[in-house]
Amino acid sequence: MSYLSIENLTVSYGDKVILNELNLQIPKGKITALIGPNGCGKSTLLKTVARILSPKQGQILLQGEGLHKQDTRQVARKLALLPQAPITPEGVTIRELVGYGRAPWGSRWGRLSDEDRAIVQHALKQAGLLELADRPATDLSGGQRQRAWIAMILAQNTDLVLLDEPTTWLDIAHQIELLKLMRELNQQGKTIVVVLHDLNQASRYCDELVVLKQGKVQQQGTPEQVLTQKLVEEVFDLCAEIHPDPVAGSPTLVPV
């Protein structure tokens, strides 16, 4: 039995079918990237796993239990989501923001226990935000903000972490910083599923690639298995050569 199992999943917006009887197994303890052209359904897939969207048909099993049948709070103890465009609320400190990560664990009223506070402190430290912790969250730059959200996910302390295009609004230095932070999370034993646009970043920082096309899984495997000239042409309709990355040795796409 695999860790996260997506079975026969159909998801649609109104009449428009986005995911069509999709089957996918995601291994425990790895970083899995969902890649594919615009509109292939990768974000939809992630959102359905995060229970933002409900399947029309099929099911998603986390360690054998149907995700859409469980209580929202229960699920939030098992999986965390970093949305594509989260809203940074007005008048809330970074410490408070990170503290919201304890919401599924603590009291329903929102008061944090000493243990919760210690976890929040640790998360802030890990994300390198300790000095900024008592500043308003809205004062942060884009890169710091994204780190604050990662810290919130750390505080949520789930085994599974879903990241929806986490690098989108960041400059290149912050993108790399975030991808490294993602690797650190993974080394602590978390399973990560991430939607990425940049194939080379996916190839270098992820263990497993899942290629989607028109709501179906086209291919799944290690970057070496998946990122081939043929696949890039089939899926992205792009003529490119694949060369090893001069630093990491991972397959890298170079457009012709």
Binding site: A50, Q74, L81
Partner: peptide, 10 residues
């Protein structure tokens, strides 16, 4: 925090 983040936090 937005609908998606809220749902993700339970």
């Amino acid at each position: 925090l937005g609908d998606e983040a809220a749902e993700g936090l339970g």
